[in-house]
């Protein structure tokens, strides 16, 4: 996993280096203060392979806040964003034994967005996921396992890309985003697709 983080990191660093050279030459955007901020609400789905013959999409909601800096060009911004995502519970059986899972995650990411034509962006981030699994048994099953309920925190790096439409310039935009999580852990589901409404101020 480290290998991949480093590669993506170096790629983005080169990208930023290229931009910063131009920025220095042009003398644009010489402030460390964000140019503006934005807030977003979103709805997401991730495909889950629940049974061999049944794939379903687990829904999630999202709240995010971001700071935007000029990257030295017109139509180009650096973005730092933090987001909270909550997932809907997985389908549960009506039976005598089942494992229920709840999950939510927090992410921080750094990226770059171009608004030259339509808003398009890419970002790299860290996702901290907290999940809780609960063994559910009915009257026919006596639970003698050591821990019927356990929660855990897992980390993954994420690569997120998005494309959007501007509804009101510099104010409201609608975006389609896809995030891929890099994690060797099989318990981490890899892809999340979402629609986000972003308000800039």
């Amino acid at each position: 996993m480290k290998f991949r983080i480093s590669h993506v990191g170096i790629f983005i660093s080169f990208l930023l280096l290229a931009f910063s050279d131009h920025a220095d030459a042009g003398g644009v955007g010489n402030s460390l203060l964000p140019k503006r901020f934005s807030a977003a609400v979103g709805y997401g789905v991730r495909p889950r392979d629940f049974f061999a013959q049944e794939r379903f999409y687990q829904e999630s909601w999202l709240l995010a806040g971001a700071a935007h800096w000029s990257c030295g060009f017109a139509f180009c911004e650096f973005i730092a964003r933090t987001a909270l995502r909550g997932f809907a519970g997985l389908p549960e059986s009506q039976g005598q034994i089942d494992i229920a899972t709840t999950e939510s995650n927090v992410s921080g990411e750094l990226g770059i967005e171009s608004t030259a034509f339509v808003p398009v962006g890419v970002s790299l981030g860290l996702v901290r996921s907290k999940s809780e699994r609960t063994l559910k048994t009915g009257g026919l099953v006596a639970d003698q396992s050591s821990a019927p309920r356990w929660s855990e925190i897992t980390y993954a790096t994420s690569l997120r890309s998005w494309i959007g439409v501007t509804l009101f310039p510099d104010q409201l935009s609608l975006q389609l985003a896809m995030a891929h999580l890099f994690a060797a852990d099989k318990l981490v589901d890899k892809d999340i697709y979402s629609t986000e409404l972003r308000y800039e101020f």
């Binding site: 996993m1 480290k2 983080i5 480093s6 990191g9 983005i12 660093s13 930023l16 280096l17 931009f19 910063s20 920025a23 220095d24 955007g29 010489n30 402030s31 460390l32 800096w69 990257c71 030295g72 650096f78 750094l110 790299l124 860290l126 925190i153 897992t154 980390y155 790096t157 852990d185």
Partner: peptide, 28 residues
């Protein structure tokens, strides 16, 4: 040069990110 600072900030963040990943407890 301000942009170079941004660049440094981003690189630093990535380093922190890697450290966090490395330190997260290895699974049993």
């Amino acid at each position: 040069m301000k942009n170079l600072k941004k660049f440094a900030f981003i690189i630093l963040s990535l380093v922190v990110l890697e450290i966090v990943m490395a330190c997260s407890k290895a699974a049993e």
